[in-house]
Computed example of a mutant assay.
Amino acid sequence: MSLIAAKIVVTPTLMWAVSAAARRWGSLVGGLLSGLPLTSAPISIYLAVEQGERFAADAAVGSVEGLGAVTLCSLAYALCAPRLGAVASIGLAFAAFVLGGAVLHGLIRPGLWLATAIDLPMMALVVALCRPAAPAAQPIRRPPRWDMPARLTAATILVLLVSTLAPLLGPGLSGVLSPIPIISWPLIVFARVQDGVGASLDVVRGSAQGAFGVLAFYIGVHATLGAMDPVPAYALSIAASAACVLPWLFARRRPRAA
């Protein structure tokens, strides 16, 4: 399979899997899975193959900075959603993402470890603010027919756009664009419109929990890519990501004591 064919096939397949999981097991699981590096990991791998390992390792630093902007976006939504309407809260959340990206990457440029120190408490705060919603009593609504094709198309376009424009954008900006929440935000918007604020905050909470795995992935890529062959470097980074996310999933599934 050629690289362009892999981009077209792998990305929508991952998007479909997360969307199907959200419909089957609920918004929180969908958010948790959407927080995994399902688009950013393929982008990083494509950058390593097409632009070189050093480029991808440097892009990982920009991605950690971009992850701070994504988390700021989630934090803004978590604060606004219970108080404002859907359009206002989503609009303010995206404004927070743009502002966060401009400040963290354009002005401060904190680097890997300072950006990590900024990301971690914000991610924990988002998790704390988004309390799990009570199980909904109403029946689950069937999404519109355009919903799944739109998600698959958006995710694929992001991967193609970032990997194609990487030589012009450079590693920093390519990295910042990689963690754009192209998977989780359609889930958040759909949950808000169909099932209300609580369901959308479940997706945000799951995405913030998954972001710990995304952060581990980028740190692993920056630390190992170039120090070892790309295959074990990405395998270790993905394993570290899964190790950060699986405890959240098992904690959710464990029955509570009476």
Score class of each variant (00 low, 15 high):
residue 146 W to E: 14
residue 170 G to R: 02
residue 21 A to D: 11
residue 200 S to M: 08
residue 139 P to G: 04
residue 258 A to E: 15
residue 128 A to N: 05
residue 27 S to Y: 08
residue 180 I to Y: 13
residue 90 I to A: 12
residue 107 L to T: 08
residue 182 I to H: 00
residue 199 A to M: 06
residue 134 A to W: 06
residue 78 A to R: 05
residue 40 S to E: 12
residue 182 I to Q: 05
residue 88 A to F: 01
residue 216 A to H: 02
residue 36 L to K: 01
residue 248 W to Q: 12
residue 171 P to I: 03
residue 26 G to V: 10
residue 227 A to M: 11
residue 207 S to C: 10
residue 43 I to F: 01
residue 67 L to A: 13
residue 173 L to T: 13
residue 63 S to I: 09
residue 37 P to H: 10
residue 74 S to V: 07
residue 188 I to M: 11
residue 143 P to I: 10
residue 170 G to L: 08
residue 172 G to W: 06
residue 145 R to K: 13
residue 234 Y to E: 09
residue 201 L to V: 07
residue 27 S to E: 15
residue 8 I to M: 14
residue 122 M to T: 10
residue 133 A to F: 05
residue 160 L to I: 15
residue 175 G to I: 12
residue 25 W to P: 03
residue 189 V to H: 05
residue 82 P to H: 08
residue 163 S to Y: 04
residue 39 T to P: 01
residue 198 G to M: 08
residue 119 D to V: 14
residue 197 V to I: 13
residue 202 D to K: 05
residue 89 S to H: 00
residue 50 E to K: 11
residue 177 L to D: 03
residue 78 A to Q: 08
residue 162 V to I: 15
residue 72 L to G: 15
residue 38 L to K: 02
residue 40 S to W: 08
residue 150 A to E: 09
residue 37 P to W: 03
residue 86 A to Q: 09
residue 199 A to C: 04
residue 89 S to G: 01
residue 214 V to H: 11
residue 199 A to Y: 02
residue 55 F to N: 05
residue 140 I to A: 15
residue 181 P to D: 09
residue 19 S to C: 08
residue 30 G to Y: 02
residue 45 I to F: 07
residue 237 S to H: 05
residue 76 A to T: 10
residue 90 I to T: 11
residue 203 V to S: 06
residue 209 Q to P: 02
residue 147 D to N: 11
residue 148 M to P: 01
